[in-house]
Structures are given as C-alpha cells and as structure tokens.
Amino acid sequence: MDGPVLRRAAIGTAVVAAAVLGFTVAMLLPGDDAARADRPTTPAGAPVEAADGVPPGEADPDGAGTLREGDSGPAVVELQKRLLRIPDVYVGGSTDGTYDAVLTAAVARFQLWYGIRGDETGVYGDDTRHDLEARTTPAAG
C-alpha cells in the first residue's frame, strides 16, 4: 500500500472510533432529551409525583425502596459507599447522601459494566441493588 491509501484508512478508522466513543459517552450521560421523552408529563392540576418520581398510589416499577436522582438520605449514603468499593465506577464520588447527576452516571456505569437490565438506566432499583449488594459488604458506619 502507498502513503495516500494508508492515510485514508487511518482517517477512516479514526472517524469510526470517534463515533463509537461519542455514542458510548452519550449513552452514559444523564439528562439527555431522549431520556426525558419517555417520561410522562404532568398536566396542570394533576397530582404531583412523590420525591421518588412515582405518582401517589402507584407502585414503583423498579421495586419498593428504589432510589433515583433527586432522592437523599441514609439509603443514598449506603449506595454511595457501596459504589466506592467497585473499582472505577464512582471514583472520588461524594458520600453526602444526595442522589445527583454524578451518582446517576455512576449507577448507569455500574449497570452497563455488569449487565444489569431490570431497572431504568441510572436508577437504583431491585435488580441493581441485589447485584451491588452481592459484590460489596455493608457500608461501615
């Protein structure tokens, strides 16, 4: 092969690699429009959702005790401490008890890396909880 052919092949390979990397990163970032599109909207005067994102009187599809962005408290601290024990999932993450965008991304990363399918991406539901608890010990006080 001569120089121009190799150069074109290298450029083509770089473009494909960049596209794959960009797609992968986009799938892990919270707050994209596609994720919001499948969330129901609340018309004016309708019942407001509870802090866990589930309308009053309805069971959470991800299981009782599900945690998601916007939640806070001791259960979130427990989740944060457990995720810190999984290499490279929540590096330098906070244990402040706030389920923020960084924690959502860490939960999504954990789900992706360990093939957890039963919960919404970035949501700490029953399937994610069982897998994380099987891989870690309870958080120390």
Results as ranks from 00 to 15, higher is better:
residue 41 T to H: 13
residue 15 V to F: 10
residue 51 A to Q: 12
residue 18 A to W: 14
residue 61 P to M: 06
residue 79 L to N: 07
residue 44 A to R: 10
residue 41 T to R: 14
residue 29 L to R: 13
residue 53 G to T: 01
residue 42 T to G: 00
residue 60 D to P: 05
residue 60 D to W: 00
residue 24 T to V: 14
residue 78 E to L: 11
residue 54 V to D: 02
residue 79 L to C: 03
residue 55 P to G: 03
residue 37 A to V: 07
residue 63 G to I: 06
residue 15 V to L: 15
residue 25 V to G: 06
residue 39 R to K: 12
residue 21 L to S: 11
residue 57 G to F: 05
residue 69 E to I: 14
residue 26 A to V: 00
residue 33 D to T: 08
residue 25 V to D: 10
residue 22 G to Q: 03
residue 53 G to W: 05
residue 48 V to F: 07
residue 39 R to C: 09
residue 51 A to H: 00
residue 85 R to S: 15
residue 75 A to W: 01
residue 25 V to F: 11
residue 17 A to C: 12
residue 83 L to H: 07
residue 22 G to R: 10
residue 68 R to S: 05
residue 49 E to D: 14
residue 25 V to C: 10
residue 21 L to Y: 12
residue 56 P to F: 01
residue 47 P to H: 03
residue 58 E to N: 11
residue 78 E to N: 06
residue 49 E to V: 08
residue 81 K to A: 13
residue 74 P to T: 09
residue 44 A to M: 10
residue 31 G to R: 04
residue 55 P to Y: 06
residue 62 D to E: 08
residue 17 A to F: 12
residue 76 V to R: 01
residue 25 V to R: 10
residue 33 D to K: 10
residue 15 V to A: 15
residue 15 V to T: 13
residue 41 T to E: 15
residue 78 E to F: 01
residue 26 A to H: 14
residue 79 L to G: 01
residue 83 L to S: 08
residue 80 Q to S: 04
residue 82 R to H: 06
residue 64 A to C: 01
residue 19 A to H: 04
residue 38 D to W: 14
residue 62 D to Y: 08
residue 80 Q to M: 04
residue 43 P to H: 05
residue 65 G to T: 02
residue 19 A to K: 01
residue 62 D to H: 11
residue 78 E to A: 15
residue 55 P to M: 04
residue 16 V to T: 13
residue 71 D to H: 00
residue 27 M to T: 13
residue 74 P to L: 10
residue 79 L to E: 00
residue 27 M to N: 13
residue 37 A to I: 01
residue 47 P to R: 00
residue 61 P to R: 09
residue 63 G to P: 04
residue 51 A to N: 09
residue 24 T to R: 11
residue 42 T to A: 08
residue 84 L to I: 09
residue 18 A to R: 09
residue 66 T to P: 01
residue 45 G to T: 05
residue 21 L to M: 11
residue 67 L to R: 06
residue 59 A to F: 04
residue 60 D to Q: 06
residue 85 R to T: 15
residue 65 G to K: 03
residue 34 A to P: 00
residue 50 A to Q: 11
residue 35 A to Q: 13
residue 57 G to Q: 04
residue 14 A to N: 04
residue 75 A to D: 12
residue 46 A to Y: 09
residue 64 A to Q: 11
residue 50 A to V: 02
residue 66 T to R: 01
residue 22 G to D: 03
residue 18 A to E: 07
residue 35 A to T: 12
residue 65 G to M: 07
residue 15 V to H: 08
residue 26 A to W: 15
residue 77 V to G: 09
residue 67 L to W: 05
residue 14 A to R: 08
residue 39 R to W: 11
residue 20 V to T: 11
residue 43 P to G: 02
residue 18 A to V: 13
residue 74 P to S: 15
residue 27 M to K: 12
residue 62 D to P: 03
residue 73 G to L: 03
residue 35 A to Y: 13
residue 25 V to Y: 08
residue 16 V to F: 10
residue 34 A to Y: 12
residue 65 G to I: 00
residue 61 P to G: 06
residue 55 P to N: 03
residue 31 G to H: 05
residue 53 G to N: 04
residue 47 P to N: 00
residue 20 V to Y: 06
residue 70 G to H: 02
residue 20 V to D: 02
residue 16 V to I: 13
residue 60 D to K: 03
residue 14 A to P: 02
residue 65 G to Q: 03
residue 66 T to H: 09
residue 40 P to E: 14
residue 49 E to Q: 08
residue 37 A to Y: 11
residue 69 E to R: 14
residue 33 D to W: 12
residue 33 D to F: 10
residue 66 T to A: 08
residue 42 T to S: 12
